[in-house]
Amino acid sequence: MKVGILSLQGSFLDHQKSLDLISLESLLVKTPEDLDKVDGIILPGGESTAMSKISSYNNLYKKLDTRIKQGLPTLSTCAGTIILAKSVIDGDTHIPNIDIEIQRNAYGRQNESFEADVKFLNNNDIYCFIRAPKIIRTLNNDVKVIATHIEDIVGVSQDNIVSLTYHPELTNDNYYLEWLLAFMKEGKYVGSF
């Protein structure tokens, strides 16, 4: 199988490294045609405003939206999660696919960026939050919470989509990588919380 990584801007090469570590073939996705060649997709961190502007050049988001709605296994981190949210506080919605309300830069500016404990499924580890958004609430019961930092929701799952607000690709711990492999192969939420 081949996993696409939305590569308009942001930490797409870090996600490629994660996929290399679990021996999954990857494709840097920049055009609508690229989306026909992949069996899964990752939306990386970066700047959601910049990515959306760049995507408008070849109308990439329209095809991406269609492919996600067809059930393509989809992982989003940080800005990628803003792109998929149904409701965005202090920002535009882009390709709403996951029923959450999210707030951009919710913890503050860069000086308030941090590393912290995250409970992701059955594992605890330390991850980076960089000018991170916050999932304020889930909008219905189809959305499962799968990751938390203290009281904050930092990861959710809905059908074929898993959305995180932090950066597992900068850490690449074994638990995350094993989960990623299983998720991309099975195409849906894997694990218990």
Partner: peptide
Amino acid sequence: VKKGLAEMLKGG
């Protein structure tokens, strides 16, 4: 985290 912000700016 400092280096991480620069990583997020890549390709931009």
